[in-house]
Amino acid sequence: MAGRGSSPSSRRPTGRRDGRSTPRTTARPQAAPVASSGGSGTRFTTRALILLGVAVMLIASYTTSVHAWWQQRSEIAALEAQNRQTQQDIAQLEDQERRWSDPAYIRQQARERFGWVMPGEIGYRVIGVDGELKGQSSTLEEPEVAPRRPWVERLWGSVEAAGTPDRAAEPTDADPELETDE
């Protein structure tokens, strides 16, 4: 009797129940199950590790490219918004320039802002009980006053100014009013 370890030629041919013999086929070797060395974990081969490394490098390179693309798209969107705002500002300034080139608009602004009237017109202003103007009044901006310097600096400044001749006091040849009669 042939055991498990015997060669296929030493085996007896098996037949069918009807007595005919079946042709022999060559047995294909079955893949032996991979024995894991340490429990139920998967075993990585060198080829799998290289493939994993290449995949990680591709992901890293594409991630930086996508990040740069995304950042540039956001910069473009911000610049386009700034461009639209600038175009609106330009349109407003052009409209304002067009208005100021119209003499009727200038007269209207002079009437509204400064209370001016045309020759022959009479302008009225309503003053309240408290002495303040009622209604719309023009407001002019106060000129900026330089901070007052200490008296010592002002005194020294006048000494320095006294040492320099005043050019407005000097007579010139072109001004006939400043000529003296001799």
Results as ranks from 00 to 15, higher is better:
K134F: 08
W151Y: 12
V117P: 02
T25P: 01
G123F: 02
R20P: 01
S138Y: 14
L51P: 02
S10Y: 08
D89P: 03
W69Y: 08
A32N: 06
D95V: 02
P23D: 09
N83D: 02
E75R: 14
E80L: 13
W151V: 15
S101C: 01
A78N: 10
A78R: 10
Y105R: 08
Q85T: 09
L49I: 13
I59A: 08
V34T: 13
L79N: 07
S40T: 03
L178W: 03
L58W: 03
D166R: 12
Y62R: 07
G135E: 06
A104P: 01
S40K: 00
G163L: 15
E97D: 09
A174K: 03
G15Y: 13
T139R: 15
R20I: 05
A91R: 09
T172N: 06
E141V: 14
L140V: 13
R107V: 05
R111S: 01
D181P: 02
L140Y: 06
M118P: 03
D181R: 03
A174F: 08
F44S: 12
W116G: 03
S6N: 11
G157N: 13
A60H: 04
D89E: 06
M118C: 03
V56A: 13
Q82T: 13
A104R: 11
R17Y: 06
G15S: 15
V66I: 12
A68S: 12
I122M: 15
T139M: 12
N83P: 01
G53R: 01
R98C: 01
R154A: 15
R43S: 04
M118I: 06
E160N: 14
L155T: 14
T172D: 08
A60Y: 04
L58C: 09
M1E: 10
Q136S: 11
I122G: 07
I90Y: 07
P119K: 08
R107Q: 12
A2Q: 08
R148G: 10
G135V: 08
E144R: 14
S36K: 07
G5P: 01
Q87P: 03
T164S: 14
M57I: 06
Q30V: 12
D181Y: 02
D181M: 02
P171W: 07
V129M: 09
A68T: 14
R11P: 01
S36H: 09
Q87H: 07
A162R: 08
G128D: 09
G19C: 11
E160Q: 15
G115L: 08
G157S: 14
G131C: 07
G39E: 04
P176T: 07
V152A: 12
T42Y: 00
G128W: 04
E141S: 15
L133W: 05
D18F: 00
L155M: 15
L52E: 10
I59L: 10
R149P: 07
W70Q: 13
R84M: 09
E144Q: 15
R47A: 13
W70A: 15
V117E: 04
F44N: 06
W70R: 13
W156I: 15
P29T: 08
E179H: 00
R111P: 02
Q85S: 10
R12W: 06
A162M: 09
E94W: 00
A110G: 00
G19R: 11
R107G: 04
A78F: 06
T86C: 05
I76Y: 00
E75C: 00
I90M: 05
G41S: 11
Q109T: 09
T172C: 02
E160L: 14
E144T: 15
Y124K: 11
R84T: 08
I106A: 15
P171N: 09
A31C: 01
Y124M: 13
S158K: 07
R16N: 14
